[in-house]
């Protein structure tokens, strides 16, 4: 119980709860089925990507190409659905395959050449985005077929995208918590050299981390297309920052070593509620960026100062 209280996820969760109660009091429509469903559905793609980002941040890496990877997948899927080969099965397979490719390219470049992941993913970010823009010439792909939008149906009052997101969260949490791969990720983020000493294959772990995130981005593309019913290749620009912000707000340490899927889910909900709340309270949405930027700066500052203190303590010698 005490441990639970100490964790950052707990305090973020409490803030979220207070925020929700406050918004409900301010405007009872906030707590309506339609509004809640809206908030949840419109944040599923973000949430799926944030799950992958959590893996990457725990290894002390970062990926600023997630939004491009998602749109890369979304665009190809939309194009696929225009061909005779388009059916629900090929869509899912293609989403996984496309995400695998984009993620693996990131993973290969980062693990093989030891270059800062921001630089690599900044580069691939414009490559992925450039390719789909060239492919479509920037044209919107409208009126996706029925079987495509059926992915986001509501069944028994539960929107399917939310179900997918929950499934992905569960799988991701299980991977992180109960597999050798997941624990290697924490080990690497906690103490890179020691992980090497303990026989963790760093290159392989990094590669898999980015590839897994790529696959999730691919699936996020599928979900996004089916919710919107169309695909705008130049859309979702700058979403990568929201994804990073969601993970960081949920308690993931951007310097590596700490983070949980549960926390990230809370972070995603927090962002969704803030966005919704601003609309409800008639605050212009452009305040969001300012607030998210500030949140990132402040939490990272706290993490760095904490780490510094712990490091200086480690270097102290015993005086008798």
């Amino acid at each position: 119980m005490k441990k639970l209280l100490e964790r950052r996820e707990t305090s973020v969760f409490l803030i979220l709860a207070v925020l929700c109660i406050g918004l409900t009091i301010y405007s009872p429509t906030f707590f309506s089925y339609t509004n809640i469903k809206n908030v949840l559905v419109s944040n599923t793609a973000l949430g799926i990507m944030a799950a992958g980002m959590t893996f990457i941040l725990i290894t002390a890496g970062i990926d600023v190409s997630v939004a491009s990877q998602m749109m890369f997948s979304a665009t190809w899927l939309a194009l696929l659905s225009e061909t005779p080969f388009g059916n629900p099965v090929t869509l899912v397979l293609a989403a996984i395959l496309i995400g695998f490719v984009t993620g693996a390219i990131n993973g290969f470049l980062i693990s093989r050449f030891d270059i800062h992941p921001i630089i690599i993913t900044l580069g691939t970010n414009s490559i992925y985005r450039g390719i789909i823009l060239v492919m479509t010439n920037g044209r919107w792909l409208m009126n996706l077929p029925k079987y495509f939008t059926a992915f986001s149906k509501t069944v028994f009052g539960i929107p399917l995208p939310v179900v997918y997101a929950v499934l992905i969260f569960l799988v991701s949490a299980w991977l992180l918590k109960h597999t050798y791969f997941g624990r290697s990720i924490y080990a690497m983020g906690g103490n890179r050299e020691a992980a090497r000493y303990a026989g963790v294959n760093l290159k392989k772990t990094i590669f898999f981390t980015y590839t897994y995130t790529g696959v999730l981005c691919g699936l996020a593309g599928l979900v996004l297309d089916s919710i919107l019913g169309n695909c705008q290749p130049s859309g979702s620009n700058g979403w990568e920052m929201n994804v990073i912000a969601a993970a960081v707000i949920g308690g993931t340490n951007i310097l590596g070593g700490y983070g949980t899927i549960g926390g990230t889910v809370i972070g995603v909900l927090m962002m969704g509620v803030i966005e919704n709340g601003l609309v409800v309270a008639h605050v212009p949405t452009y305040w969001q960026k300012l607030v998210y930027g500030l949140i990132i700066i402040v939490t990272v500052t706290i993490d760095v100062l904490r780490k510094k203190k712990a490091d200086s303590k480690k270097q102290m010698i015993e005086i008798d």
Partner: peptide, 29 residues
């Protein structure tokens, strides 16, 4: 196996996991 001077441990993992890691297994723990 060696214990190096800087201990080579993981502050963010539990005692049990610290002891267990390095067995280089795959899949589920």
């Amino acid at each position: 196996n060696a214990i190096h001077q800087d201990l080579s441990l993981f502050p963010n993992l539990t005692v049990a996991e610290n002891i267990y890691l390095g067995r280089s297994k795959k899949g589920k723990i």
